[in-house]
Design a protein around this nucleic acid. Structure first.
Lengths: 181, 181
DNA sequence: CTATAATGACACACTAAAGTCCCAAAATGT
DNA sequence: ACATTTTGGGACTTTAGTGTGTCATTATAG
């Protein structure tokens, strides 16, 4: 693939993330327009909708993976790890919007291969054994709630709350909700 | 409207809630099928999609209102009120699924008339003045997070967690997350 | 500068879903 | 039991979105 083609491809994926994050039912025309590209060009790079969705899914997966790596889940207490992970994920911005929609184009649950998001479950279980994370809450509950707290943080950002305020309150809420009493 | 017509109407609304809760892009045919009614009949009761959506919105609004009333927001501490409200809302079941979707057919934010959901904000603010609810968390944050915790609880239910476990952990999480340290 | 690649602007065909209409059959309730 | 409603089924039209293809124009990189 030539440099120009790669560039266009990235542009479209980027636009797709931005547009679909707000409305997963957005049309290909809308995405093309957002990318400042004709619909013809979009179709030239992505044969059909699923192609584009798959590419977006892959891109998001890579970003989540990078964020997870940046959170250094091994270091420090489990609660600290959870907090760091939340902050890193929060930094992903728009991408978060794709994870929560009903017919989500991006599904972290489908990334269960080697070490993708399984890291989260491992951290939670470890934290519960160490007495670090509230043992009255099940692993599944903490897992699901972790994501929904992130969802709330993203909604708050969309609603105009400052990133600083969101980051602080997300951190505080994660620690209070999940920390052992 | 005759009794029979009213009955059919309710059936369709009920089916609409059930079907749309799982996929907001479901077709009218699917809804009609779920209601054991022909598409003709559905269209006879609801001229177009928006008509049906409006009726569903109204129905949900009424249910949320009843749930809110059952939670007796005035009584006891703000934290207790929040807890009770969460439990009442959780009891609404399927209806919850309609609130969170990206292109949500039901939008509690649009119900701001006399005393609809404003009750929640009032409780939160009151609780913060009383030192009952964590003063480090803004009203908006608590509001949004309250809903997203509910969303997580609903997801857990969908995922097969028992209602009892969900109710317990939701209560615990609400109290820990929102309670003053 | 120039060959090659990529793009934009069309014009198509195809599909799924929405919405409209009609009429015969079935149910409702009094 | 019978008049009145309501329903089911089918045949339409319309619309929006998708996917395909072509061809002239423009951009790109060597």
């Amino acid at each position: 693939m030539s440099p120009a083609a790669r560039r266009t491809r990235r542009l479209i994926i980027e636009a797709g993330i931005a547009v679909l994050a707000e409305r997963t039912s957005a049309t290909l025309s809308e995405i093309a327009a957002a990318a400042d590209v004709s619909r013809s060009t979009l179709h030239r790079h992505f044969a059909d909708r699923n192609d584009l969705l798959a590419a977006i899914d892959a891109e998001c997966r890579a970003r989540f993976k990078r964020a997870e790596a940046a959170a250094r889940l091994g270091e420090g207490s489990a609660l600290d790890s959870l907090d760091r992970l939340a902050q890193e994920y929060l930094g992903l911005g728009l991408v978060l919007g794709l994870v929560f929609a009903d017919n989500a184009p991006v599904d972290p649950d489908s990334w269960d291969d080697e070490d993708g998001d399984g890291g989260l479950a491992v951290v939670i279980e470890g934290g519960q054994r160490e007495g670090d994370i509230d043992p009255e809450l099940s692993t599944e509950w903490v897992d699901v709630t972790f994501w929904t707290l992130l969802f709330g943080a993203w909604l708050s950002l969309q609603g105009g709350m400052s990133r600083r305020d969101v980051a602080f309150q997300l951190s505080r809420t994660v620690r209070k909700a999940f920390g052992a009493a």
